[in-house]
Write a protein that binds this DNA or RNA. Sequence first.
DNA 1: CAGCTATTTAATAGAGCTATTAAAAACGGC
DNA 2: GCCGTTTTTAATAGCTCTATTAAATAGCTG
Lengths: 207, 207
Amino acid sequence: MRNNTSNTESQILASAEKLFIEKGFKGTSTTAIAKDAGCNQALVHYYFRTKENLFQKVFLGKFKQLFEQIKVPLERETDFFSKLENMVDVYFNFMIQNPKIPYFIFNELITNPRRRKQLRELFMQKPHQDDVYHQFCASVEKAISQGVIRDIEPLDLLMDVGSLVVFSFLMAPIITDFLDLDQSHLTDFVDHRKREALTLLFQGLRV
Amino acid sequence: MRNNTSNTESQILASAEKLFIEKGFKGTSTTAIAKDAGCNQALVHYYFRTKENLFQKVFLGKFKQLFEQIKVPLERETDFFSKLENMVDVYFNFMIQNPKIPYFIFNELITNPRRRKQLRELFMQKPHQDDVYHQFCASVEKAISQGVIRDIEPLDLLMDVGSLVVFSFLMAPIITDFLDLDQSHLTDFVDHRKREALTLLFQGLRV
DNA sequence: CAGCTATTTAATAGAGCTATTAAAAACGGC
DNA sequence: GCCGTTTTTAATAGCTCTATTAAATAGCTG
């Protein structure tokens, strides 16, 4: 190999990422990837052997990217409502910049048991990533015992936040089409949802 | 035609429904549908001409089924918190009985602009179905002016409820696999989420 | 049962897909 | 400029898929 990541190889990866995210595994052909990357179809297999292989690279990469973002506000030591605000903020920002990622990951996790297994193994290999979750649990329980928030299971709180953040983005393309909104109105909508999510959470968690 | 819906025809429809919901449009072949229905592959095309046609029948049928459920608590005239509880109740129950429907509808709406168009036209044809939404808006605004709930836009309230209900079900298969839960623990989880959703909404909407 | 229609079958056209292979082209060091 | 390696290409095997067709079968009616 002449350079560590040849131009073609990374171009294929970029095209694959774009197409897989847009159309999913089944909806994307190696032929289409090659065409988008502007190279011969055989090169896709030359560099990545199989479509499945290439997909895994993209999928795990994106998942790690998401996870890196998610863990930041969970780890940070602040008062509880700041942590909450920080979570909503970070998640919304990530989604604004990567609006198709949550659906991409969801889709593949839901439709393909193999991906769930892959991901599980990924977590089993690195049990220390659990710490993020347990760290979060500890801070929730502390906030409860200090009377800062009402009694709630940490997983529920996580699900509440996740629901309010992710659902807005899953719905976004549907709403856009239904109400004939353009991109600028869409970001308004998302921004509006962010404020409402915070309001609901803050009020809904009071003692 | 001998009987209005021949045995084979409805069997094909049933198999198509099962497989489309499980694997989506791209993931399901007419060959697989025929095999599942226990008939010759050509029959699928004999009765429905194209795969697209067959899919539309399934999709619109399921969407109507969902919509019929959704509108019930929106229309009912009760005090606002009862309406809210009723909504969460009905939606959760529907999802427990049709756990794969929300993802199925989501998936096709998100990935296929044509489906969004189809659905939009469906609504445009029957503008009276708008009334359900406007009826709901009216009851929200009444509740606000009466000081029963805090100030909130009706669409936000709808999104809040939708988020908290639907997200639980989208996550369910992922959580099952991750935590090695069996079906009984899963329904516990869902039931638990239902209570938390209600708590969050009731508290989060107080003045 | 004869004739008509509805249903079912096997066969196949025609397309697209993944993956492989053998040969050609590009590139590097010597 | 030559040689070995890496990269790229065209060709193709071997699938699977949708949709159609012509022929066979079943079912009803008079």
